[in-house]
Each structure stands twice: as C-alpha cells, then as structure tokens.
C-alpha cells in the first residue's frame, strides 16, 4: 500500500507538523516515508504545504502530481489541490473555514469542522490534529496509537505539556469519520 498525501493551509495552521507526525508514525511502523515541504516566501504568512508519502515499498518520487489525499485547511489550499486529487481519492476539508463546495463527484469529500472542535478543546491550534485524526480514520495507513506515540518525537519539548490536548484532538477527528 502506498499513500501520497498533500497537506495545505495558511502558515501557522500546523500543516507541516501533522505531515511530520504522519511521516514519523509511518517510520515507527517500519514503512517507507518521505516528507517534502514547500519552502520559501509562503512560509511567511502565505499558504504552506507538504507532501507526505507512506509506502510499503521504496519511495521513488518524493513529490506528487496526483495525491491520493489532500487535507486542506483553508480556501486557497482547496482551490489549489482539490482538482489534483486522484480519482477515488480523499479530500479532507476544514469546513470551519471553507464554505465553497468542490465540484467533483469522483472523490470522497470529508468535511470536518476542525477549528470549531479545536476551539471546544480550548486551543484553535490543534485544528490540524483534528484533521489528521479524521485522515487516519478515513485511510488505514498507520494506527491512531502510533500517531499518538509519535507526538513526543515530533513536538518540541516545550510543547509536551500540550500532548494530552493533541491526543484528544486526534480522537475527536478520528471519531468523526
């Protein structure tokens, strides 16, 4: 099995972090993984995205023209990546911030009110984890437990006090799907 996922959003929405978390979890489960960020001016306030590939086999191209899944946290990201998702692939939409409908009926569109849920948990910044939780539920590529286990590896030490909240956010997203 091989999954190519693009995660995209505003800088600061934490798409790079959930990408790293997913890649780390894949590595923990002895899969081949790669994480490729966009870099440059978009890091400073514009849109950011990363491509994560998790596979049972060696990964050739670390970039993807037609991802199996796109996780979009804001409208510019949806506009950019929704058309690229592979037929029968998944599009996970942060419906808290995106109202616009995607005109495609050949992909599985999952709407998650990620910011609303994150706010309920007390911190808007875990919206990214809600989205990742939903993705893990939709696509069985790594286990939710492994993702949770990887939080300590991926989050900087000064944020380790937020691990319980991140776990809860992952659960909330997971249980939605």
């Amino acid at each position: 099995m091989k999954q190519e996922i693009i995660m995209a959003g505003f800088g600061g929405q934490g798409v790079m972090s959930i990408g790293r978390l997913l890649a780390y979890a894949g590595m923990k489960e002895s899969k081949e993984v790669s994480w490729m960020p966009s870099y440059g001016p978009e890091m400073r306030g514009g849109t950011a995205n990363c491509t994560v590939i998790v596979s049972d086999e060696k990964i050739p191209a670390p970039v993807s023209s037609h991802p199996d899944t796109a996780i979009v946290m804001n409208l510019p990201s949806q506009d950019k990546f929704a058309p690229k998702v592979k037929k029968d692939g998944h599009l996970l939409v942060n419906s808290s911030l995106i109202e616009k409908e995607v005109e495609r009926d050949d992909i599985n569109i999952i709407k998650i009110p990620a910011n609303t849920i994150a706010d309920e948990l007390g911190n808007t910044r875990v919206a990214n984890m809600v989205m990742l939780g939903a993705y893990i539920a939709a696509v069985d590529i790594v286990s939710l437990d492994t993702v949770k286990d990887s939080l300590t590896n991926v989050l900087p030490e000064r944020r380790h006090n937020l691990i319980p909240m991140n776990e809860e956010a992952l659960d909330r997203g997971y249980n939605l799907v």
């Binding site: 790293r20 890649a23 590595m27 081949e32 993984v33 790669s34 994480w35 490729m36 960020p37 870099y39 990964i59 670390p62 970039v63």
Partner: peptide, 8 residues
C-alpha cells in the same frame, strides 16, 4: 528538495 525534505 533534498535539503528540505525529511526521510528516515
């Protein structure tokens, strides 16, 4: 790309 990407 190689400089910026992460792999095991």
């Amino acid at each position: 790309m190689l400089g910026q990407m992460m792999e095991p």
